[in-house]
Simulated scan of single mutants.
Amino acid sequence: MTVTGLSPRPGPPALVVVAHGSRDPRALDTVRALQDRVRALRPGLPVHLGHIELNEPLLPDTLAALGEAEAVLVPLLLGRGYHVKRDIPEAAAAARARTSVAAPLGPHPLLADTLHARLLEAGWRRRPASAVILAAAGSRDPESRVDTNRMAGLLAARLGVPVLPAYASAATPTVPEAVTALRARGRHHIAVASYFTAPGRFATQCAAAAPGEAAAPGEAAAPLGAHDAMAELILHRYERVLGTPVTVAA
Results as ranks from 00 to 15, higher is better:
Thr2Gly: 00
Val3Gly: 03
Thr4Val: 14
Thr4Met: 03
Thr4Gln: 08
Gly5Arg: 05
Ser7Phe: 13
Pro10Phe: 11
Pro10Gln: 10
Gly11Tyr: 04
Pro12Arg: 04
Pro13Met: 07
Ala14Cys: 10
Leu15Asp: 02
Val16Pro: 05
Val16His: 04
Val17Tyr: 02
Val18Cys: 14
His20Lys: 11
Ser22Cys: 08
Ser22Arg: 08
Pro25Lys: 01
Pro25Leu: 09
Ala27Glu: 08
Ala27Trp: 08
Leu28Glu: 12
Thr30Gln: 06
Leu34Asn: 03
Gln35Asp: 07
Gln35Ser: 12
Asp36Thr: 09
Arg37Cys: 09
Val38Lys: 05
Arg39Gly: 01
Ala40Pro: 00
Arg42Leu: 02
Pro43Gly: 08
Pro43Asp: 08
Gly44Arg: 09
Gly44Glu: 08
Leu45His: 02
Leu45Met: 04
Pro46Asn: 05
Val47Lys: 05
Gly50Thr: 07
Asn55Ile: 01
Leu58Pro: 00
Pro60Thr: 11
Leu63Asp: 05
Leu63Cys: 06
Ala65Gln: 13
Gly67Leu: 10
Glu68Arg: 15
Ala71Val: 15
Pro75Gly: 11
Leu76Tyr: 12
Leu76Arg: 00
Leu78Thr: 04
Gly79His: 08
Tyr82Gln: 10
Val84Thr: 14
Val84Arg: 02
Arg86Thr: 15
Ile88Trp: 06
Glu90Phe: 02
Glu90Trp: 02
Ala92Phe: 05
Arg96Ser: 14
Arg96Val: 00
Arg96Trp: 00
Pro104Tyr: 13
Gly106Val: 07
Pro107Thr: 12
His108Gln: 07
His108Asn: 12
Leu110Tyr: 08
Leu111Met: 11
Leu111Ile: 15
Thr114Tyr: 03
Ala117Val: 09
Arg118Asp: 09
Leu120Phe: 02
Leu120Gln: 13
Glu121Met: 13
Glu121Gly: 12
Ala122Cys: 02
Gly123Leu: 07
Trp124Pro: 01
Arg126Phe: 01
Arg126Asn: 12
Pro128Tyr: 06
Ser130Phe: 12
Ala131Asp: 04
Ala131Cys: 06
Val132Gly: 10
Glu143Gln: 15
Glu143His: 11
Glu143Gly: 01
Ser144Pro: 00
Arg145Leu: 14
Asp147Val: 02
Arg150Asn: 08
Arg150Leu: 15
Met151Lys: 01
Met151Asp: 01
Leu155Asp: 07
Ala157Gly: 12
Leu159Trp: 09
Gly160Gln: 11
Val161Ala: 13
Leu164Pro: 00
Leu164Arg: 14
Ala166Pro: 05
Ser169Tyr: 02
Ala171Phe: 04
Thr172Ser: 10
Thr174Asp: 03
Val175Leu: 11
Pro176Met: 02
Glu177Thr: 03
Glu177Gln: 15
Ala178Phe: 03
Arg185Tyr: 02
His188Cys: 01
His188Glu: 11
Ile190His: 09
Ser194Val: 12
Phe196Glu: 04
Thr197Tyr: 06
Gly200Tyr: 10
Gly200His: 08
Arg201His: 14
Arg201Leu: 14
Phe202Ala: 13
Gln205His: 10
Ala207Val: 09
Ala207Tyr: 00
Pro211Tyr: 06
Gly212Leu: 11
Ala215Cys: 03
Ala216Glu: 15
Pro217Trp: 09
Pro217Ser: 06
Gly218His: 11
Ala220Ser: 13
Ala222Pro: 00
Pro223Tyr: 03
Leu224His: 08
Ala229Gly: 10
Met230Ile: 14
Met230Leu: 15
His236Val: 05
Val241Ile: 13
Pro245Arg: 05
Val246Lys: 02
Thr247Gln: 04
Val248Cys: 09
Val248Phe: 03
Ala249Ile: 08
Ala249Ser: 14
